[in-house]
Nucleic acid binder design. Structure first.
Lengths: 200, 200
DNA sequence: CTCTGTAGTAAACGGTCGTTTACTTTTTTA
DNA sequence: TAAAAAAGTAAACGACCGTTTACTACAGAG
């Protein structure tokens, strides 16, 4: 057992994230691993099965990340209560973690790009793309800022998250993402400082 | 002459913007128009030729848009001079135009989505995606804010453009984009007001 | 040493791909 | 109105698609 199933998953994700699901052939994936496409069917039922396994893997990783960062879940009442005790420093730290996660973590970065490529083909992929990257985080921050008592939480959330979202695309087109990450850190710190001042 | 060549261009763009270039077949395009794929080759040399014609068309439309909105071009010295005389109202008006252009103009909106789908396959497409949608506008605003004397033009540009960039993705996943557009208008107005205040 | 299950190869399957060809219909024009 | 040009059809081309099949190599267990 050489972990072939895992290597297939990663090789497929790399190709899906560059070319899109339809444009990648089963032969392409097998070729990356130096095996024939027939061998691939010993580990997965087919091309779609690999794709679905990637989705499941991301779901699992996302749950772990939410647990590690103590993201509140459950009924809205309890979430509001938890939100109110969040400090600006905690928001800044969590935002920097997310900035690096989607930009630099290999699996998450590849998955983000794959989602972007699939979002217009399938309503389910559009839903996932919104949930992980667009209206999901935006709604989360809107609720958070509302619980903190900001006067216009929707605007504040867009002003906070918009630059982060933009910088992921800057990273995708840059030879060296570190400058974009550094700018993101500055923007997050500045926004957190404003947040602290606005609460007084 | 029933403008078949033009209808092919638009039908192909619609499909490319949803599924990506590779995932769209020549038969798919022909089927949308109720003709056979053989007829398509009377108007274009092949699938790639249609794609290249779409790129050329966007280039042409972009030049027209820049002309209509008096976007300064030429040597850096003259641009700086032109930048310094720009008012916050002009920036807000131009930004709202761009917000609607990439979100609601049919051709531009489809082209934006097509670029997003092709950006990772081909370095040239990555370049165009950055130029039209990411580092292009961001660099433009950075230069503009620098000429206006803002202390941190890079941060200001990211804070200004990030939310716009995010809202295009919100529109893509929303049933009704009008709420996102309205929020964009508010954000642009608020940023322009801050800009006016910061200049004093 | 044999048995058993796993991982792999090579070839074939029907189907679709982009493109070309030969031919017909429609439209323009002189 | 007849010739010519343009636009469209149907079929075929070789290549590649995802998947299946038949067969081989080889590990560890009894």
């Amino acid at each position: 057992m050489g972990g072939t199933k895992e290597r297939i998953l990663l090789a497929a994700l790399r190709l899906f994230a560059r070319d899109g699901y339809e444009a990648v052939s089963v032969s392409d994936i097998a070729e990356q691993l130096g095996i024939t496409k027939g061998a691939l069917y010993r580990h997965y039922a087919g091309k779609r099965d690999i794709f679905n396994s990637i989705l499941a893997r991301m779901e699992q990783r996302d749950a772990e990340l939410a647990r590690d960062n103590q993201v509140p879940e459950g009924p809205k009442e309890e979430m509001e209560k938890a939100y109110r005790s969040v400090s600006a420093e905690q928001i800044a730290a969590f935002s920097k973690t997310m900035l690096r996660y989607w930009a630099q973590d290999e699996f998450a970065s590849l998955f983000r790009r794959m989602l972007i490529l699939e979002q217009f083909r399938d309503p389910e992929m559009s839903r996932l793309c919104q949930q992980y990257l667009v209206s999901g985080p935006l709604g989360y921050l809107t609720d958070l800022f509302a619980a903190l008592g900001l006067p216009e939480p929707r605007k504040a959330a867009a002003e906070f998250y918009g630059p982060m979202f933009l910088l992921w695309s800057v990273c995708d087109g840059a030879d060296d993402p570190s400058r974009a990450i550094a700018l993101g850190d500055e923007l997050i710190d500045a926004a957190a400082a404003r947040l602290e001042k606005g609460k007084e």
